[in-house]
Amino acid sequence: MTAASPHVVLLAGGVGGSTFAVGLRDELAARGGRLTVICNTGDDLWLSGLRLQPDVDSMLYALAGVKDDAKGWGRAGDSQRVSGELREWGVGWEWFELADLDLGAHISRTSWLREGASVSDAVARLQARWPLGATLLPMTDTEVDTQIVLPDGGLMHFQEWWTRHRARIEPVRFENSGIDTALPAPGVVDAIAQADAVLIAPSNPIVSIGPILTVPGIREAVRVARGPVVGVSPIIGGAPVRGMADVCLRVAGVPCTADGVGRHYGARTDGGLLDAWLIAEEDAAVAASVPDVDVRVEPLWMRGPDLTRALAVATLRAAGL
């Protein structure tokens, strides 16, 4: 039965997740529904004395309508004066952009954290600035930054590997130190339990969705959620829509295919997560290759607001909403 005013929870990270969230927010608003986004914080890092949350900020800016659409992240109309000064002082990473408006968010967040606020408190304060039409929750209040384990046993922060090296170094594995004892952030498990549907965004399955599901208690909450669990493939025609997800999948031993990622998440009836899985028209031939999951073939390219919202409609339809 379709809920009159559905509450939907979205697990998301990265550019694809934030783009999808906007279309989903708009469609739910038209139905009188509401959206809660559980954001990946595995990408978080300390840089130049500041706490950065790339996935949280991408979601914040996208829902606020201030994202730089050309780049896919950061603030529209931003400038680089402070970054230029930091380079002159030899502070930070010269290949990691810290734009001026974006720095305002980083400085504010760091100030609140140093005053004793939790990560959840800081995220709540950040989102209070704009009418987002959605609620953002970090996956955990614990620092569990994603590290790359290198062949020589050394460690590198995910952001350095991703941004500076463009994933050209083949890692042994990804790890999130401390995540085994982390707790879901306040409200996360309750939101999943009460949702009319839980959606998995077309985000990187390994480094965006993976850390969320690794926080103890979140995967199980999704598995026993009362609402259907529906995922959207981030792979179209055997290639990631954006970024270097193919490298991440290869390291994790997951085929870079729509059905490979679907099997990675698995069917809820068989101990996995999914009730339904959306794949692109380009991948229709593998629709039968995800056992015990309702695989739907839909246009997945989010090229503009109309197509993005149409994908949100198709995803909600797969959830029975």
Rank of each mutant, 00 (worst) to 15 (best):
Pro291Lys: 00
Asn176Ala: 13
Ile235Leu: 00
Asp55Ala: 02
Leu98Ile: 12
Pro138Thr: 00
Ala267Gln: 00
Trp162Ser: 02
Pro299Val: 06
Asp26Ile: 05
Ile212Met: 08
Ser233Tyr: 00
Trp130Tyr: 15
Ile206Lys: 00
Leu126Cys: 07
Ala280Gln: 03
Gln80Tyr: 13
Val22Cys: 04
Gly178Thr: 08
Val198Lys: 03
Ser48Leu: 15
Pro54Asn: 05
Ala201Arg: 02
Leu50Ala: 06
Gly17Met: 03
Gly187Cys: 12
Arg226Cys: 07
Asp44Trp: 13
Leu28Pro: 15
Glu220Met: 07
Leu63Pro: 06
Asp44Met: 12
Gly210Met: 01
Asp292Ser: 14
Ala310Trp: 00
Thr146Cys: 06
Val123Asn: 09
Ala12Gly: 08
Glu143Trp: 09
Arg75Asp: 12
Trp46Asp: 12
Gly116Gln: 10
Val9Lys: 06
Asp68Phe: 11
Val144Lys: 10
Val119Leu: 15
Ala252Asn: 12
Met156Val: 00
Ile107Gly: 04
Trp46Arg: 14
Ser79Asn: 12
Arg125Thr: 05
Gly17Leu: 01
Val144Ser: 06
Asp43Ser: 09
Ser79Tyr: 11
Thr41Ser: 13
Arg226Thr: 07
His165Lys: 14
Gly231Ile: 06
Arg168Tyr: 04
Arg31Ile: 03
Ala312Trp: 04
Ala276Cys: 03
Gly217Asn: 08
His165Met: 06
Val215Leu: 09
Asp102Cys: 09
Ser111Ala: 15
Val224Phe: 04
Leu183Phe: 10
Val172Pro: 12
Asp102Gly: 08
Ser203Gln: 05
Gly84Asn: 07
Gly49Thr: 09
Asn40Leu: 07
Val172Gly: 13
Val15Glu: 03
Leu11Arg: 08
Leu126Ala: 08
Leu150Asn: 14
Ile179Asn: 01
Val293Cys: 02
Val293Phe: 00
Leu321Met: 08
Val229Lys: 02
Arg75Asn: 10
Gly253Asn: 09
Glu281Ile: 01
Ala193Leu: 11
Cys248Ser: 14
Asp190Trp: 08
Arg109Gly: 01
Ile192Met: 05
Ala239Asp: 01
Leu35Met: 13
His157Pro: 02
Ser118Gly: 05
Arg303Leu: 15
Glu115Asp: 13
His157Gly: 05
Glu175Lys: 07
Gly154Val: 09
Pro234Thr: 04
Leu86Val: 04
Ala245Ile: 00
Ile209Phe: 04
Gly32Tyr: 11
Leu103Ala: 07
